[in-house]
Amino acid sequence: MSYEFLQTLWFILIAVLWIGFFFLEGFDFGVGMLLPFMGRKDEERRAVINTIGSVWDGNEVWLLTAGGATFAAFPHWYATMFSGFYLALFLVLIGLILRGIAFEYRSKDSNPKWRRTFDWMIAVGSFLPSLLLGAAFANLARGVPINQDMMYTGNLFTLLNPYGLIGGMTMVSVFLLHGANFLTLKLEGKLRDRVREASKKLYIAAAVMVVLLAATTYVYTDITTKIGIDPGIIPIASVVILLSTILFINRKMEGWAFISTGVRFVLTQVAFFTLMFPRVMISSTNPEWSLTISNASSSQYTLTVMSIVALIFVPVVLAYQGWSYYMFRKRISTDKKSLVY
């Protein structure tokens, strides 16, 4: 296999890992942020947590694997992005730590104060990564200051520009909607009705943010020079799918509503990575200094070895993770006897 082919393959594979992460952990984050607002009684909050109880940890591994794969396949991308976005990623990590512990510890003590504290840790710990990863992705598309030595020369506030903030808030709003759709799919009774009502309002927020992000993308990124005014079929399909979501919500087609928000993540991410390709980090200082799949990658040997490993094990992982979803496909009730977390 040629070097260029392998580099492209790993670009695609890392894109797939991110897509998996946004699709799966996206609803985990949404559920986490909705927790203090949807569950009024303790059993209700427990039911909300139990909808993602068996899967959140496995979903988070998609992020870890995306990080690990970037390290192995594109060390310069890993080094520049992770050191450059240092404080943003630090806050992402703090968020992930808080929510991970909170899921496991929250119901292991009956003190209401203890539980309330951990509930808020779940909410805040879900909000921080959503906001900051959204901001990070928007900034990747926009370009960040990178010098000729592949070094990031900005700071945390460089990332908090208008486009970055729109990206962050868009991510929060679409995760909220995705999470609400997941909850209506997994809950029952009054709690489900409450989430469905909320999802209608969340839909408006998400739709506004998505349109705003799409419009500002023409202002802040090089989409017009790279792709042109007509963005192609994928972004348009993503908007059409977003429009369909509200129909599914209103007709109580819960499975379809959830699939529609999920597919929208897939399409937006495909659009994002298409815009980036073959660059992995755009330098706003000088386009010549951008990191690309060819100047940031590992050796051909490492890419070959890693391709073989991935070819064998990715299908295995997909199979057992899919199986675990199938095993726990039933709805979650607020009956205490059936709650685990």
Partner: peptide, 22 residues
């Protein structure tokens, strides 16, 4: 990264998915 990244990525793919899912 060429060397150290490989076992790290393999760790995530082979071990992290397995322990967390199961």
């Amino acid at each position: 990264g060429d060397i150290f990244g490989a076992p790290l990525a393999i760790e995530a793919l082979l071990a992290f998915f397995m322990e967390s899912t199961f």
